[in-house]
Structures are given as structure tokens and as C-alpha cells.
Design a protein around this nucleic acid. Structure first.
Lengths: 345, 345
DNA sequence: CTGTTAGCGCCTTCAT
DNA sequence: ATGAAGGCGCTAACAG
């Protein structure tokens, strides 16, 4: 696969116009100290000759790639793809490019991906951690080189890494309190790896609400899975086997909540009369399922935009990153029919 | 933002080991003609010194970036994020990296993105076209340089560009026939820009089925929007205003079908008794909505895998791309309650 | 405003 | 099995 005819370089343009390559370079990059007329002729020649700037060479020389790296657990989840879409928009609008990889929820792949990102000399990194990541040594090489690393949603405490997330504890506390206010006393919580702040915090908000209401927290009421659709079905099976049926389920994401709910309905359980339901994320499915699902609205798009903008501002004007150590975005409880028992029973 | 201490290069390793940089380079890239012992000491020194290979420099020298570019209309759609996840998996497994950008359904951004991809010298490109793309001149510079361009799902006919898609005409023909078999005689079709094969072909399948059954095709029964959730709601309003209510709706995607269906239900329309419904894509929402949506199963993940593998095989072993000009993947009709009228009425 | 020079870090001949 | 030398294409000094 030879690349056909030789690439046109700035030297070719320089030769044709009888000027130096440096001037061509300046003309092409809108350098201020180049006359209008020469710039015009440079651009014209470049166009005619089919010149395409070689970012690789430029990156090597300038030690700047204009590339942002993103590592997320998965690309095909509603939340993550929203987040990435937000990132892409901001990154693209600022003439940066985007390297993307997914860890598939394993630390091992996260480490590999981080390595590739560093080798490609990304100017900055946005990371949302995998389920089983226990430490973040794999990001140290970035920090050593002053390449900013920002954690988004699934964060990690580190002095040099800004974090962007929502107040998961508070959101879970509120949603649990809502269930309690609706008369629920025996609430199951479906969640995933407690290594991740998002799940650990939601669990602690759930606990806090129970304790404050004088309800007993039971270890056995917490079902840890991977919050997939299948996990919801499995949880439903587990619930159906319980001696005493719970009166509510609070899942740490909507996907799992919805599949669990549907599975229970198939077995004759009425929602919310028998079991009230709440999820997390405000997934598109939340307002399709019947009854509509009570959840926490917390769209990834905005979070992606904010994270990317923070990173790019820092890259462009050296704005201080350490100053914004953690950025806690707003989330809101959305109450829908799946949890409204009081009026029904 | 200085990058802290100077980068460790192969020269630093060479100096420390009193060997040449060339040998270090060979050692690092598993070149066969380097002794076991020197390679070992090179790897050890590299590790100790915190050396990280600079892909940028390597790319410049070798004229190969090990990067695949992807341009899709949007990142945050269930289908596209599935597709990208499939691409990422294959690309990652083959030690390539992924550049991703979204056109947001405009040709203008698609052109800009393509430019950036070329400047960054991607080794190959996967493209799914925007709604309003009228020509593909913006990919000519790739072809001129023998950089392979593969179209996925939303394709374009071009002698040098392989295409990967499904038989949209056939799928739409089958689904329309199914609706007709259920007794529907006045079927609305919701779709988007007919510049795109996926929508043009689905429309022609729909037409073909009507004609073969002796039903009249009416221009006014085709509603062209952007197939968004909002488009579904708008279509519902339009349908409700019709003199004579249709007896079926076939939407070119599930998102739009679902939102249209729910909106109609809010106005007392019974599905499928009053209006039968069918969508396209087998979106996660299709089996959450009540009644479950009849649709065409056609997951993006596999399509992404196939496309990426085809591209990478070509890149690695120069396998002939032209040979596989178009690859038509399987799709299947999935019949669910939203279209089962015959047994009900 | 423009030219000269040098080198970013690596790989790849060619030579030994 | 290893070394020496050159250059990928561009840009950042430094001159003028």
C-alpha cells in the first residue's frame, strides 16, 4: 500500500513561490508577521498543489498534539455516549481531536489504554474509571509530564487531578427518603462495584436515609452485580425467592431498574402497589417503561461539555487546574409513577 | 505548562548502556536481529528510566500512524454507540488507536472532520454519512493517498470505497408486508433525509410492498423529519389531525416509533387495535415500551466489528479491499405485540 | 516582514 | 548483532 505520489510539503510550496519554507509555515498558520499578499499566494499555491498539513510533523516539532484522550468504561451506554458526545462537541469546536478508548470495566485494559494515550502524546486526558480499578498509578506518568488528567463521574481522589461529578450521596439520600415517605420500609438496593465513588456514595446515601428514619439497614438488602439488563433480571429472580417481598427497589441505574421491574411484572408483581421502583440516570427508557420510572436526572452530555471545557481552557490559557479541584454538578430527583404508592393504595 | 523534566529518549537509554540508539530502537520494537541479552537490558533500562516511546516521532519516520479514524453522524445514539463500541474493540485488540468525531448530521462538519483526520494522517477511515451530505469529494484526498475509506450503514456508491450495510429495502419490504398481512391498508411511513441509502431504501421497500399488494402509495403518507424523539411527537400530532386515521405506522427507527406511539396513546389511540406500529433497529426501548415494538433487528456492534476488521486486515496484510466492494450483513424481522392486530380485533 | 539553521525522536538503510 | 548517518515535515530560534 504505497501512498501514491509523494506528499506535497511546505518545501514544495516554498520552491514554487521562490520563498523560504519558514515563510510558508508562517503563512499557513496565520502567523501575524507575514504580508497579506504572500499569505494569499501561499494559500493559493497550497490549495492548487493539494497540500495537506502534516500534523504529525507539526506535533513532533511543537511538542503539542492538539489531541485529547478519553478513557471510559464502555462506549455503548446511554450515559457514557452522551458524555462523549458532549466532550466531542467542545473538543471539536476548539480544533482539538479526540482519542477514545474503552476499558470494558477492567483495570487491565484501562492501563493498556492509558499507555497508548501517553505514547500518542495526548495533551490531556479525561477518565471515567473501570469497575475494578484499585489504584491510579497508570496515570502517574501523565502527571509527571504535567499532562492534565481529569476524572469524570467515576472519580478518584488525587491531589493533582480535578474531579467532575454529582453529589451521589445526596441524590441517593433524597430518592431513598422519597421511597420512605411513600411508605416503603423494606427497600432493596441494586448496585455495582463499591470501589467506585458513584456506587459507594449512592449506597451511603441510601444507608443514611434508612438510619435517619429509624429503619434498619440490612446487608442482605444490597445486591451487588454489574447493573446490566441481565443483572436486573437476576435480581428479580432473587427478590421473588425472598421470604418476605420487599416493598421497594432502588437501583443505581435505570437500565437495571427497568429490566428488574419488567421481570417482576411478568411474575404478577404490581408496580408500584406491591413494589415501588426508583432508578438513577434518567435514561431514555425511564419514561418509556410502564409505569414511568422515578429516577435522578443527571445527563452525561453536560458533564462531558464541562469536563472538556475545563481541560481545554487549561490547555489554551494555562488557567489553573488545581484551583478547581472538584466540580460538583447539579442533579435532580424526578418523581414518576413507579414510586407513587401513597395515592394508589 | 512546561512538561517538567526532559523526556527520556532512546538516546538516553543508548548512552546509559553504551550502545547505539539504533540498537535500542531495535530492541524496543522486537526486531529479530538483536541479542536476547541486549534486548533484556534495554527493556530493563527503559523501564527504570521511565522511557515512553514517542509514537509521534515514530509515525513521522515510518509514515504510519496506527490510528483509525471514525466519522459518524452522532455519538449518542444507541445504534451509533454500539457500532463504535464494536469498532473500538477490534481496533484496540489490534494495537491501533481510534480517532472519533461526529458530523452532527451536517455535511459541513463532516468535511471539517475529514480534514482533521487527514491532517492527523489516519491509516484508514470508517464513515457513516450525515443526513445532508450530497457528495463525497471530501474523501477524495484520502483515496488519492491510498488511505482506505470504508462506508458503514449510511453508505455512498464509489468504486474505491467498500460499503457495509444491510438490505434495507428487503427489511422494509418484509415489515410492510407483515403490517399488510395484519390487515393494515393505510400505512404511514416516518423517515428522514432520502439522500441516505438507509432511508431511501426503506422507503422503496415500503413502496414495493404496497404496490405488490395492490395498495395505493400516497406521497402524503410519508412524513420526513429527523427521526428524533421530537419528530415522533410531531408526527403523532400530524396523524391526529388527519381526516381518516391511518391503521399503521412504520417508522424508520425505533426512537421515533416509540415516542410517536406513546404520544398517540396519550390521546386515547389503542396500539395495535387502532393503529399498528413498527420501527427499525431493535433499540433497547423496543422491548420496554407497551406494547413491545415490532422492528428489524440490526445491531450496530457487529457491523462495527466487521468494518473495523475489514479495514485492519487490509492495513496489516494488504488484503484486497476492492474485492469486497459491498458487504451486506444480515438483519431480521422481529414481530412483537405492537403490530399484532389480527388476533385482537 | 523574511531567510537560515537546527533539531523534535525515531527508524532505516548501509556498513561493519 | 551492532553502529553511523541521514531524514520524515515542520517550526522555533536567531538574524537581518
Amino acid at each position: 500500500m504505497d501512498k501514491g505520489q509523494k506528499e506535497v510539503t511546505i518545501y514544495d510550496i516554498a520552491e514554487k513561490l521562490h520563498i523560504s519554507a519558514a515563510t510558508v509555515s508562517r503563512g499557513l498558520t496565520n502567523h501575524p508577521r507575514v504580508s497579506k499578499s504572500t499569505r494569499k499566494s501561499i494559500l493559493k499555491a497550497a490549495e492548487e498543489m493539494g497540500y495537506r498539513s502534516n500534523s504529525i510533523a507539526s506535533n513532533l516539532r511543537s511538542k503539542k498534539s492538539n489531541v485529547i484522550g478519553v478513557i471510559v468504561p464502555r462506549l455503548n451506554s446511554s450515559f457514557m455516549s452522551d458524555l462523549i458526545a458532549g466532550v466531542e462537541k467542545v473538543v471539536n469546536n476548539n480544533n482539538y481531536s479526540l482519542f477514545i478508548s474503552q476499558s470494558l470495566e477492567t483495570m487491565q485494559k484501562e492501563v493498556t489504554n492509558a499507555r497508548a494515550m501517553l505514547n500518542n502524546r495526548v495533551d490531556g486526558l479525561l477518565v471515567s474509571l473501570a469497575y475494578d480499578t484499585t489504584n491510579i498509578e497508570h496515570f502517574e506518568p501523565f502527571l509527571k509530564r504535567n499532562i492534565p488528567v481529569i476524572f469524570v463521574d467515576r472519580v478518584f481522589e488525587h491531589a493533582s487531578c480535578p474531579q467532575i461529578f454529582i453529589d451521589n450521596t445526596k441524590a441517593a439520600y433524597e430518592i431513598t427518603n422519597h421511597l420512605i415517605a411513600e411508605g416503603c420500609k423494606n427497600i432493596i438496593h441494586l448496585t455495582a462495584s463499591l470501589l467506585r465513588n458513584v456506587y459507594a456514595d449512592r449506597l451511603s446515601g441510601y444507608k443514611k436515609a434508612l438510619e435517619e428514619s429509624g429503619l434498619q439497614f440490612r446487608e442482605s438488602n444490597v445486591i451487588i452485580g454489574d447493573l446490566s439488563s441481565q443483572a436486573g433480571i437476576d435480581a428479580a429472580a432473587q427478590i421473588l425467592k425472598m421470604e418476605k417481598l420487599p416493598d421497594a427497589v432502588f437501583a443505581a441505574n435505570d437500565i437495571c431498574a427497568v429490566s428488574c421491574m419488567i421481570e417482576l411484572q411478568k411474575h404478577g408483581i404490581r408496580i408500584p402497589e406491591d413494589i415501588a421502583f426508583a432508578g438513577f440516570n434518567n435514561d431514555p427508557t425511564a419514561c418509556v417503561v410502564q409505569p414511568n420510572l422515578t429516577t435522578v436526572n443527571y445527563k452525561g452530555y453536560e458533564m462531558g461539555e464541562v469536563a472538556a471545557q475545563l481541560l481545554i481552557n487549561h490547555l489554551i490559557d494555562k488557567s489553573d487546574l488545581q484551583q478547581t479541584h472538584s466540580l460538583i454538578l447539579r442533579s435532580e430527583l424526578i418523581i414518576r409513577e413507579s414510586s407513587l404508592r401513597s395515592k394508589k393504595s
